Every structure is written in structure tokens, then in C-alpha cells.
Simulated assay, not measured.
Amino acid sequence: MEGHVFPNPVDTESYMVMLCYKNGSLAREDIRNHYAEKSWDVFNKYLQQTPPLNGGRLGFYYKDFEILPPLPVGFHRYILENFSGDSLDGIKEQEVQEFDPPSEVRAIVEGQLLSKRAHAERFGMPSPPKRIIATGGASANNSILSLIASIFGCDVYTVQQPDSASLGAALRAAHGWLCNKKGSFVPISSMYMNKMDKTSLNCKLAATAGDQKLVAKYATLMKKRIEIENRLVEKLGRL
């Protein structure tokens, strides 16, 4: 396992796990440029018209050296023959050079999310989690949000302020100012308790939890992905 566990600086009974990935939005943008006419509209259309599980197509897209898993630049594509999602028994994998454009789009999004689910579960995330709060630029993409709900099996929320890093920095600054004004430590929750709906912290439901049978099938696909990922790490590692 590779990741970070941080104690909460303002709540002694809480902690945060952070998993770092380098190939995120820029890797998706690269696939968009090569296979979706450089258009997010086409990218989303392909994502919507391809079936869940992508016909057993698994893609590993590393435009830059990846952090988790620790792998060098490279692109690896596999087709799982006769994969239905119910079992891995009798499944044969075939490595290929390329998928058709719609399958490439679904492969990168499904692959990134399956990787996140697998590594988060290794760190103790329950399956399904209680909820997911999506932030950042991709949180404005409803097609990706729906796929998150399908793979993780929980409701997905977004916040009014998608740039969560700047929001967090502002909250910490405000909390420090408040503690200084009071002359003692005060819980950070006092800043927004009972008035969450009036702040940028307010969350809105963006996608409802996916069908649990499909979630279970994604779990089967996830196991195969991690199996292949482990082989790639053993073979290639980080050069």
C-alpha cells in the first residue's frame, strides 16, 4: 500500500487518508484529443453510448510517471474474453494495441475509478462508502459523476465551490482568526454548524447510487484490474 494518513489538525478524533495520482485530468484530456475529436461533448457521448464494464476492456493510461501504482510512462490495454462480471473463472485476457474510440473513452474513466476504489478499499474504505463528494474540474461532468456512483455504489455529491483546495485554505485561515479572536481553541464546526446551506460547503446530490448488482460486477472487474496492475508493477516498476 502507498498513501498518507494525516491526523485532523482541528479534530483530535478524526483523520484523513490521501492517495495521490498523477495521471488524472490530463490523461483524460489526452484520450479526448486522440479519440474524441478534441471535444468533451464527443467524449461524453462516447461515455454514454458504451455499456458498463466496457465489454471486458481494461486500460492503463500513464502519460506521466504514475505515483499509485508506481509505474513508468506507458499504455496497456487488455480485453477479457467472455467477461460478464459474474466471475473470473475461465476468463482469458488478451493484450491489444488499441480499442475503438468509444471504448478508449470508457476504458480510461472506468480504469481510473476502479483504481481509486481498489486502493481506497485497501486503506479501509467501506464498500459501498456512505457517500462521495466530488470536487475539481471533473465534478462538473455529469457523465463522470454517474459512473462514479455506478462503480462505488453510493450517492455522489458536489459542492458549490469546486476548487476545494482554495476553499480549505480559506477555512483554515478563518478558523485561525476566530481562535485568536476568542483567545482559545474553538471547534472549526462552530463556523458552519446549522448554517451549512448558506455556505460554499453546502453539498447537492449529483448522482444516485448505482444498481448494487452492477456494483458487484465492477468489484469483479476491479479484482482483475488489480491482478494485472500487480503484474505490471512487478515487471516494470518505476524506472
Rank of each mutant, 00 (worst) to 15 (best):
M1K: 10
G3N: 10
V5Y: 15
P7H: 09
V10R: 06
V10P: 01
E13T: 13
Y15W: 11
V17P: 14
M18S: 13
C20W: 03
Y21F: 11
L26Q: 05
A36R: 06
L47V: 01
Q48F: 01
Q49S: 09
G55A: 12
G56P: 07
F60P: 05
K63M: 12
F75M: 04
I79S: 12
F83Y: 11
G85Y: 05
S87F: 00
D89V: 10
D89A: 10
E95S: 15
E95I: 06
V96F: 03
E98S: 02
F99S: 01
F99M: 06
D100S: 14
V105H: 08
I108L: 09
E110K: 15
Q112G: 12
R117V: 09
H119M: 14
R122N: 14
P128K: 13
R131T: 09
T135P: 00
G137W: 02
A140I: 01
L145S: 13
I148F: 09
D155P: 14
Y157L: 02
S166D: 06
A169Q: 10
A173V: 10
A173P: 00
W177D: 01
G183T: 03
G183I: 03
V186G: 06
S189L: 05
M193E: 07
S200W: 01
N202H: 10
T208S: 14
T208N: 13
G210C: 01
V215A: 11
T220G: 09
E229L: 03
